[in-house]
Design a protein around this nucleic acid. Structure first.
Lengths: 206, 206, 206, 206
DNA sequence: TAGTAAACGAGACGGTACGTCATGTCTTTAT
DNA sequence: ATAAAGACATGACGTACCGTCTCGTTTACTA
């Protein structure tokens, strides 16, 4: 029964310290110099490891970057949970904005750049970084629909594109103009819509 | 009187045919092989020109890419104009989606990637490609506000981020899932909002 | 005990086959096309190696040329040795003349040209090519002084400049006029001098 | 009769000031930075002229260098003339040595380098710079033969190679070791020979 | 005194080679 | 088997000059 777990391949086992050293070096380079400085050679040099070791464990530069990012930010995405889905959503967007304004923002921008033209990286980033958080946000929206805060016919997929797309697009094009006030305004528009409300109704809204 | 126009710098004038040949070669490579194939060497080889000629006129790879993109797509952005701002907006978004699904979409994704980490390219792309179209779209929104189709207190800047951000984010993350049906749904959400409408009112909407 | 010899630097050892291939390619180009054709790019292409490999091991074009020359001519300079220093000197000069008339002559001319303005090459050529042979020739002269064939007060350094300078100068300025007859005449002048012999002695000479 | 001289081609005549400016710039670069800095581009830039102007009048880099050298040193080679050919020869060699130790020495070394592999330069340098002075020196030797200072059977050509070859070879290989003391010793050897003086010995020699 | 032909500056252009950098694969020794 | 060290082929980078070209302007001399 415990057999499967105890089956160990022969030979020297993978050195986990090396793995972590490499990921740390990678993340440092990513935050310090952006995509420009993020080089396999530089990572190997800083980690004091051999290039071969990196190539053995990560299929591409992007995959390494993604894992380094995940490793460094694994604890950064615990979102609050209250009874109001809209309040939770606002809190989550504000927190994410804070993250994006810091060094992680640069890294994410670099990652998105890297994944254009490297399918491996795209897959890794979407599945491992975006995916889980998008799923969580989707559950949040569904909660809002269930408790009547959001429209029952809301297309959650599309709504997520609007919210997170706006955020990331701003990160990619004008990262300096990314602050909480903007997030609040953005959320307000996406929540209540651009269109003029049907007559005699809107006055109480806002 | 016409003196200012006739002032010509000394020396052999720039050969415009060469300029166009280079831009065309650049755009071909961009659409054919993506960012991977877009190399100064490759552009020079295909254009039958010298690398120096390219470096003489374009400060960076990105700047060349941006200008090549503009040159190739200069005529592609004439939007329809009716009496309805919302209808015009929908038409414009649909048309843009069509463009993004084609080869130009790949190019734009590559451009956005390139501009992360190359300030020159960022400036060129934002000012020369995004800027004008964003300004035009903003005028469209203002028209909608003026004629009562859109909320009088609409924050146009934020709304544009939501609409174009959603579109581009989808392009960058799941380009295959970019179609007109999606655009329509997205526009519907951003127009009317995610939130549940105030009671006794919404039933007739949607 | 044998530790010193067994100390091997870590990493993959230098590939000697590559080294020899590069030197051979370099020497071929040197003899075929002269200094004009001797290009790092061409050497790399012909050797089927990478430019970086060349730059890793040779500090300059000239250094590569010098080593290629040495490698190719290492066995060509075994001079005869009889009891007569003068006879040996004549033999040596004749043999050298023969070498200079062949492809090696072109190479040497190119080397001398290259070392003007490249200190590295100068050092390499003088120390590694000229030096040893000059030392050998100097010993020959000293033998001649010792056995009474040459003047006891002869300044060997100066004499070597006269003999080898004449030879090389002719190579550099009129390589086509470099033959054994000329060498014999030259040696005759330097051996017996230009000046009219002191009276009462010379009449019977010549 | 004067017709041939007065036949002037149509068009603007060659500007002599430009010619001299270019030659001066060329010589400056030659002395300042050696062959390395001697670039058509640099000459044009320093002279404030166009590259085309240079290419119009000089067939090659070497030809320009030779003419620049000649122009700058035209007045430097007036040799003294006494009744003693040997004394004149010594004076001439000493003066030449002084010249070679200065900036002109560098230039000559560069010229000799350049002429290897550029036939045009070789011809220009040999004919225009070396030739006349060699002819003059030959006349000097013939004077010495005529007045009994030098051996009647002296091969002047060979003697000149020995004297000037030694001088230039030293310039090319160890320019720092080029001084008047060395010249005197060298002349002594070539004048009186390396071989043991006759006394009852010469008969069997040769 | 206008026309014309070449000189001259400026600088664009297609090239070649440079020396450097990063990639990804490989060979070797040590653990 | 894993890891460090580093050699190696590849290919793009951005730069320096090359030699040729096309301009507009200048400077004589002819007609």
């Amino acid at each position: 029964m415990a057999a499967a777990a105890s089956v160990r391949p022969p030979g020297r086992p993978r050195c986990d310290a090396t793995r972590r050293t490499i990921l740390a070096a990678a993340y440092e380079l990513l935050t310090e110099g952006g995509a420009k400085a993020f080089t396999i050679e530089a990572v190997a040099a800083r980690a004091g490891s051999a290039k071969t070791t990196i190539y053995r464990w990560w299929p591409s530069k992007g995959a390494l970057a993604v894992e380094a990012f995940r490793e460094a930010n694994s604890s950064a995405f615990a979102y609050p949970r209250t009874t109001s889905a809209v309040a939770d959503l606002r809190a989550q967007l504000r927190q994410l904005t804070g993250t994006l304004r810091g060094p992680a923002g640069q890294v994410i921008a670099g990652l998105v750049a890297e994944m254009q033209g490297d399918e491996e990286t795209r897959r890794a980033y979407l599945e491992d970084c975006i995916g889980p958080r998008r799923a969580e946000a989707r559950r949040l929206l569904e909660r809002g629909i269930a408790n009547g805060e959001l429209r029952p016919d809301l297309d959650a997929d599309v709504a997520l594109d609007a919210l997170y797309g706006a955020l990331h697009w701003r990160l990619l094009t004008r990262p300096e103009a990314l602050d909480e006030a903007w997030v609040d305004r953005m959320l307000e528009v996406v929540l209540h819509g651009m269109a003029q409300a049907p007559t005699a109704v809107r006055p109480d809204a806002a």
